[in-house]
Simulated assay, not measured.
Amino acid sequence: MIVFTSICTNYAHKARTLAESVKKNIPDAKFLVCLTEREEPETMNSPYFDEVILSKDMWEGNFNRYIYKHAIVEASTSVKGHFFKYIISHYPEEDKFVYLDPDCFVYSDFVELRNLLDTRPIILCPHLLQPGNIDMELSSTAHGVYNLGFLAVNRSEEAVRFINWWADRLYLFCYDDIQRGIFTDQKWIDLAPCFFDVEVFKHRGYDFATWSLLDCGMTKENGQYFVKGDPLRFIHFSGYGATIEKCMRDWLPEGEHPFKELYKEYSKVHEKNNEDNVSKTPWSYSKYYSGEAVEDKLRIEYRNNNDAMYSIEDPFALSNSEIKRILKNKKQNLFELGIQSLKQNGVRETWRRIIKQL
Rank of each mutant, 00 (worst) to 15 (best):
M1E: 06
I2R: 02
I2S: 07
C8T: 15
Y11E: 15
H13C: 06
A15I: 03
R16W: 05
R16F: 06
L18N: 04
V22L: 03
K24W: 03
I26P: 01
I26V: 15
P27Y: 02
D28A: 11
D28I: 03
F31E: 02
F31M: 06
T36G: 07
R38E: 10
R38T: 13
E40P: 07
E40K: 14
P41K: 09
E42M: 07
Y48Q: 02
E51L: 12
V52C: 05
V52N: 03
V52Q: 10
S55T: 10
M58S: 05
W59D: 07
W59K: 01
W59I: 05
R65Y: 11
Y66N: 09
Y68D: 09
K69Q: 15
H70D: 08
E74G: 01
E74N: 03
T77P: 00
T77D: 08
I87Y: 05
E93D: 14
Y99P: 07
L100N: 06
P102R: 01
C104K: 02
C104F: 00
F105M: 12
Y107F: 15
Y107S: 01
Y107H: 10
S108H: 13
L117F: 02
P121M: 02
P121I: 03
L129S: 01
Q130P: 00
N133D: 15
D135Q: 13
M136D: 13
M136K: 12
S140E: 11
V145I: 15
V145D: 07
V145F: 11
Y146N: 03
G149R: 02
F150A: 00
A152K: 06
A152W: 04
V153N: 08
V153F: 09
N154E: 01
E157S: 15
A159E: 11
N164K: 15
A167R: 12
Y171F: 15
L172P: 00
C174P: 06
D177A: 13
I178A: 06
I182F: 07
D185Y: 01
I189F: 03
L191V: 09
C194Y: 14
F195V: 09
F196I: 10
V198W: 04
H203F: 12
D207L: 12
F208K: 03
T210A: 10
L214H: 08
L214P: 01
M218F: 00
K220W: 05
N222T: 07
N222A: 12
F226Q: 04
K228I: 08
D230N: 10
L232N: 01
H236C: 04
A242Y: 13
E245V: 01
G255D: 05
P258K: 00
P258R: 02
F259W: 07
L262Q: 02
S267F: 01
H270I: 11
H270T: 05
E271Q: 15
N273W: 11
N277Y: 13
K280Q: 12
P282G: 04
W283E: 00
Y285A: 03
Y288D: 10
S290T: 15
G291L: 04
K297Q: 08
K297A: 11
L298M: 05
E301R: 09
Y302T: 01
N305T: 04
D307P: 10
E313G: 01
D314S: 03
P315V: 11
P315A: 09
E322K: 14
E322S: 14
I323L: 12
K324F: 07
R325M: 11
I326R: 04
I326C: 08
L327R: 06
K328I: 05
N329W: 00
Q332S: 12
Q332G: 00
Q332C: 06
N333G: 15
F335V: 14
I339A: 14
Q340C: 11
K343R: 14
Q344F: 13
